[in-house]
Simulated assay, not measured.
Amino acid sequence: MDSKQPPPPPGYNQPPGYGQPSGYSQPPPPPGYPGSTVVVTQPVHMNPYMFREFGVQMQCPQCQATITTSTRYEVGTLTWVACFVIAVVGCWLGCCLIPFCVDGCKDVIHSCPNCKQDVGRYNRM
Results as ranks from 00 to 15, higher is better:
74 E>L: 08
91 C>I: 10
82 A>H: 02
67 I>V: 14
66 T>Y: 09
85 V>H: 01
99 P>L: 03
52 R>S: 06
67 I>Q: 14
35 G>K: 01
38 V>T: 08
61 P>W: 12
69 T>N: 10
39 V>M: 02
102 V>C: 10
36 S>Q: 07
97 L>A: 12
41 T>K: 13
47 N>M: 08
46 M>W: 15
74 E>F: 04
92 W>T: 08
99 P>V: 03
65 A>G: 11
80 W>Y: 09
99 P>M: 02
77 T>Y: 04
84 F>N: 04
68 T>L: 09
37 T>S: 05
78 L>Y: 05
73 Y>L: 05
94 G>W: 05
28 P>K: 01
55 G>S: 00
37 T>G: 00
48 P>N: 03
90 G>I: 04
55 G>A: 03
62 Q>R: 06
39 V>S: 03
91 C>S: 07
68 T>S: 11
80 W>A: 06
68 T>I: 15
32 G>M: 01
79 T>K: 00
49 Y>N: 11
50 M>I: 12
95 C>A: 05
100 F>T: 13
101 C>K: 10
101 C>H: 02
41 T>A: 04
52 R>T: 12
66 T>N: 14
49 Y>V: 00
62 Q>C: 11
76 G>I: 08
46 M>T: 15
72 R>Q: 09
45 H>I: 15
86 I>Y: 00
75 V>F: 03
49 Y>M: 06
70 S>P: 05
31 P>S: 01
75 V>H: 07
78 L>R: 09
54 F>K: 14
47 N>L: 06
72 R>E: 10
43 P>H: 00
60 C>T: 14
91 C>A: 09
100 F>K: 10
56 V>I: 04
98 I>D: 00
46 M>V: 15
82 A>N: 09
52 R>K: 14
91 C>K: 04
83 C>L: 06
83 C>M: 03
86 I>V: 15
57 Q>N: 15
51 F>G: 10
73 Y>P: 07
87 A>P: 04
45 H>T: 15
61 P>Y: 12
33 Y>I: 03
32 G>Y: 01
100 F>G: 09
37 T>A: 02
78 L>M: 13
94 G>A: 04
76 G>Q: 04
42 Q>A: 14
102 V>W: 11
83 C>N: 12
74 E>I: 12
